[in-house]
Structure formats: C-alpha cells, structure tokens
C-alpha cells in the first residue's frame, strides 16, 4: 500500500517536473515547439516500452468511438499552455489553476453526461475552489 501510495505521489511530482522541463524548452524556443518535442519524445519512449512489454494493440481498440482519438490535438494545446504559463506565473500557480479548471469542468462534464453525484459535495467543492481562486487573485491585485 505504501509502495503504491509512493508511486501515486511520484506520478504527481513527474507531472510538475515535465511541465518545468517543457517550460524551460519553451524559454529557448516557443511554447508550441516545446509541445511538439514533448509529444514526439513521449511517442518514441512509449513505442519502445510497448515493443519490449508487448500488448499495445490488445483488446478491441478499433471499436472505440472516433472522438476518443482526439485527445492528442487537445493535449498539444494543453502542454503548450502549461509551458507558456509556468515561466510567467510559476509552477505552483500554474498547477493550482489547472487543477481548479480540471475539477470544475469535471463537475460540469459529469452533470452533462448524467453521471450520478451528490449535490452537496459538488456545491461545496466548487465553492471552495472558486474561493481559492478569488484569494489567489486578490493576493496578486494588492501586490
């Protein structure tokens, strides 16, 4: 259990590490070029590991709906945005606001797709996140 918990924490550290390295690359090149290298280097790496381990095309990938294949272009804009922001507002604020956006849009997506959920928790969670964003913003404004 502690082993898996450490892996989950490490995964979060690597998300931040990746954004910092991409942000550093964007400082020398551009946010979009940084996103390109992130994707092509990741592609080569995953292809290599998948060839070693096997099972890349296991299951019924062809049966997936066509729109599920569009995560890539969305990810390109996501990585470019992160690389652009991290040099401007820092790693912590970039991460915090992305988390806020992910959580609140997740609630909206859940409601649209009719996923079951508890109203009190959704209301309280969204309210706390909005309050946090307001505090972060107020801190900046007063300088």
């Amino acid at each position: 259990m502690i082993w898996f918990a450490s892996l989950a924490i490490l995964a979060g550290v690597l998300v931040s590490l990746s954004r910092q390295i991409n942000g550093r690359l964007a400082l020398s090149t551009s946010a979009m070029e940084s996103s390109f290298w992130n994707h092509i280097v990741g592609l080569v790496f995953i292809t290599g590991v998948a060839l070693l381990v096997g099972g890349l095309f296991a299951g019924e990938p062809a049966a997936a709906p066509w729109w599920a294949y569009f995560g890539g272009p969305v990810g390109v804009i996501f990585i470019a945005a992160g690389s652009w922001l991290i040099a401007r507002i820092g790693a912590a604020q970039t991460a915090l606001l992305i988390i806020a956006g992910q959580m609140i849009s997740g609630v909206v997506l859940d409601i649209i797709m009719g996923a079951p959920g508890q109203l009190w928790a959704r209301t309280l969670g969204v309210a706390l996140i909005l309050a946090g964003m307001w505090v972060a913003h107020g801190g900046r404004a007063k300088g």
């Binding site: 296991a58 299951g59 599920a68 996501f78 945005a81 606001l97 956006g101």
Partner: peptide
Amino acid sequence: YFSAAFGAGGLLSLMVLFNGTLAAYGSLFF
C-alpha cells in the same frame, strides 16, 4: 494568465475523457 490556466484545466478534463475512453476499449499503452 489565470483564465488560460483555468481553461487548460478544462482541456485536461476532455483529455481524461478521450484517453480514458480509449483505455476502456484498448490497452493502457494504446
């Protein structure tokens, strides 16, 4: 900057939905 980061978080939700749907049909590698 705040709006861009918040919007990027929205894109991340879409990615999780798209890639998670792929994982439901194919392997996690895929």
